[in-house]
């Protein structure tokens, strides 16, 4: 068979598999796996947010602990999720929830660093004025710094969501759950069309979530900051912020 035709046919089969309603239902069907995938990703993001966001706020507001934070973030980024999942599987094969920890690790650095950088990047003049007119430390944080840092905070969450959803694939390594189950089993049985079908589903979810964040950005971020950004690009930025990504 012509290899080109083979490539196409595997892809087409993947799409067909994805859209075949016969594969949708049941507790091992695509829908159930999508729900699982979202549940685990959402839970991991939630856990990471609860930990990373306050830490980011404190670091950004006080300007202390930035070095420790970025070093810690680097170590966290270096941790191979697949390895951690495998380890956890060996140690506690009975339940999936510890595996959330492995995913949450991924989401910590972008949320923490972007929050800290967003707060730290607030124009010192703005902060000075806020203090000078009599806002308390807490009011400065909640009424001025956090709203000004919102674009970066959301970018960090978006990046975290992107990585967590893509990486949640590894939860399928021993058939535990999520769309990764199809990918691992597709590989194992050399039914690559299943791998493609499940991959397309994951990519679609990531893009939908990205779109949701774009909408959120539009809704939540003050238009004043959007106008300000145009002017800001002409000036140099003080600290370079990465909308960081890492392992999946």
């Amino acid at each position: 068979m012509d290899p080109g035709a083979h490539r196409m046919s595997v892809l087409v089969e993947g799409v067909q598999w994805l859209f075949d309603s016969g594969n949708w239902w049941g507790n091992r069907g695509i829908v159930a796996r999508v729900v699982e995938h979202l549940e685990y990703s959402g839970a991991a993001l939630g856990v990471a947010f609860v930990i990373a966001f306050p830490i980011g706020l404190i670091i950004g507001h006080t300007g202390k602990g930035r070095f420790v934070a970025s070093s810690t973030a680097n170590v966290l980024r270096a941790v191979p999720t697949y390895g951690v999942v495998s380890l956890l599987f060996i140690w506690r094969p009975l339940t999936l929830w510890p595996l959330l920890l492995a995913l949450a690790i991924l989401a910590l650095p972008p949320i923490m660093l972007n929050t800290a950088a967003g707060i730290a990047n607030v124009d010192p003049q703005t902060r000075d004025a806020a203090e000078g007119v009599g806002l308390t430390g807490f009011q400065v944080l909640t009424k001025v710094e956090a709203p000004c840092a919102l674009p970066l905070i959301l970018a960090g969450m978006r990046s975290a969501a992107n990585q967590v959803i893509a990486t949640a694939t590894v939860l399928g390594v021993k058939g535990q759950g999520g769309l990764g189950v199809f990918i691992f089993s597709g590989y194992g049985t050399q039914r690559y069309y299943i791998v493609y079908g499940a991959s397309i589903a994951i990519i679609a979810i990531v893009l939908l979530v990205e779109a949701a964040f774009a909408v959120l950005q539009r809704r939540l971020v003050s238009p004043g900051l959007r106008v300000a950004r145009i002017g800001k690009q002409l000036r140099s930025r003080k600290s370079i912020t990465l909308v960081g990504n890492s392992a999946r």
């Binding site: 083979h6 694939t169 990764g180 990918i183 690559y192 990519i203 990205e210």
Partner: peptide
Amino acid sequence: TNVVYAIPSLALFALLGPFLGY
């Protein structure tokens, strides 16, 4: 680049499979 980044690595290996071998 966003789309590429959204592809899980395992899926990307598979996607490249037909072109580069499995």
